[in-house]
Design a protein around this nucleic acid. Structure first.
Length: 380
RNA sequence: UGGGGUAUAGCCAAGCGGUAAGGCACCAGACUUUGACUCUGGCAUUUCCCUGGUUCGAAUCCAGGUACCCCAG
């Protein structure tokens, strides 16, 4: 089969490509470039800007060496415009609304498994493959996304928004392997990047001082930090948009004994609301509405569905109940209470190893009352 | 200007003659393809408001200052 592999310059995609080649496929590699720091004005909080070779170019160099070592052709594709329009614009819009988006899920949805997928289709490839840790089970008319065998590295969470259509033509060669096994294979092959550190941070943008990075696009606007429980002003924030619910660090509240955690914000009054103590009841929610749903396979919502969910990457599985609200919204209930379920973040649903799909957390509730209303009432 | 009390890190705070606990904040690292959370480590030795004194030894006891607080005027 003719397969296009997204080669990032890291170990994972290198070994993914290697395994496909070993299996006898006709493999072509492609390096994606989706972010240009200079044209995107990504100046503040960008540590690689003054480095001799920015990490992105280094990654490309690594990818070239890997392709060469594997004896595979390497193409280079650019989706800078698409990334900006579909991923980054949404990312900024969400932050502007005071929410906390997950750009990497958008990146998979719009870039890797849409724009790049189409590229593969248009160029006569049978399948697209990446180095993600996840499994896909193909059958005649539909495919299933499954958790990776390596439960520690499982990345199905980030793949929850890709289309069934793309999934059907996708392979994840690392799905049955663990990360240590992948590194071992790379070592045996003497792959250049066998010991390269796992990448973290926003995909294609990398690690940044996040507040500074955001301030390139969303200017700082100082304001008050208020103790929600007694309405006392206890500090100053650097811009309400820069903080996320559940956040502890960076509040710089030193005059009052903490620890303090963010439980709410008002983007119009430009106020941040905090409470004290890591077990504070304000930190726990019991349900949320989820929109922008993507299901890999049809779900029968005639009855309440019991399944598990993750509200952020690497969160242990949470028991939840799903109920349909309307065609675009479901209510997710978790009476046991879960900490810091954050609007804008992704809720991803599983039954056993099968990833059902996911959606964006829209409104959070405590005992079926909108938390924003609870905060508002508390401040009266 | 009568009486009483308190001064220890950015904030809070233990210590009561034997060589400066702890928490918050902050910083660093780990973890991590979002943002967070979490974990580990660092963080007063020209040191305990200042100056003297007692003592082998003082943040601790004594004397005198200084600052702030409270009560009564």
């Amino acid at each position: 089969m003719k397969i296009l592999v997204g080669l990032s310059g890291g170990v994972d995609s290198a070994i993914a490509a290697y395994l496909l080649k070993e299996a006898g496929h006709d493999v072509t590699c492609a390096f994606m470039r989706n972010w240009d720091s200079l044209t995107n004005n990504d100046i503040l909080g960008n540590p690689t800007l003054d480095e001799a070779i920015c990490t992105q170019e280094q990654d490309y160099e690594d990818a070239k060496i890997v392709a060469q070592q594997l004896g595979l052709p390497l193409e280079r594709v650019d989706y800078i415009q698409e990334y900006w329009d579909n991923v980054f614009q949404t990312f900024l819009d969400e932050y502007e609304k005071g929410r906390t988006p997950n750009p990497d899920i958008l990146c998979n949805k719009y870039i890797k498994f849409d724009a790049f997928f189409k590229y593969a289709q248009d160029n006569g490839f049978d399948y697209l493959a990446t180095g993600h840790y996840a499994r896909v089970e193909h059958s005649e008319h539909s495919s299933k996304l499954l958790r990776a065998k390596d439960r520690n590295k499982d990345q199905s969470y980030f793949l929850c928004q890709i289309s069934q259509k793309a999934l059907q033509k996708t392979l994840f060669p690392l799905g049955e392997l663990t990360k240590p096994q992948v590194r071992e294979i790379a070592e045996k092959l003497n792959i250049q990047v066998a010991h390269k550190k796992d990448s973290t941070g926003i995909c294609f943008i990398g690690e940044r001082n996040f507040r500074q990075f955001l301030s390139n696009y969303l200017p700082a606007k100082n304001g008050k930090i208020i103790n929600l429980e007694n309405k006392e002003v206890i500090g100053d924030h650097k811009g309400v948009l820069y903080y996320t619910l559940g956040q502890r660090k960076g509040l710089d509240i030193s005059a009052h004994r903490g620890p303090w955690f963010v439980v709410g914000k008002d983007i119009y009054k430009n106020e941040l609301y905090v409470v004290k103590g890591e077990d504070n009841p304000w930190l726990f929610n019991t349900s949320c509405n989820v929109t922008d749903l993507n299901w890999f396979n049809p779900i029968d919502f005639n009855q309440t569905i019991k399944c598990t969910a993750k509200f952020r990457y690497r969160q242990p599985d949470q028991d939840v109940y799903l109920r349909k609200i309307d065609n675009k919204t479901i209510r997710v209930s978790f009476p046991q209470g879960i900490k810091a379920v954050v609007p804008g973040q992704e809720a991803v649903f599983y039954v056993g190893d099968v990833c059902l799909g996911g959606g964006i957390i829209d409104v959070i509730y405590k005992e079926d009352v909108d938390v924003r209303k609870l905060v508002e009432d508390k401040l009266k």
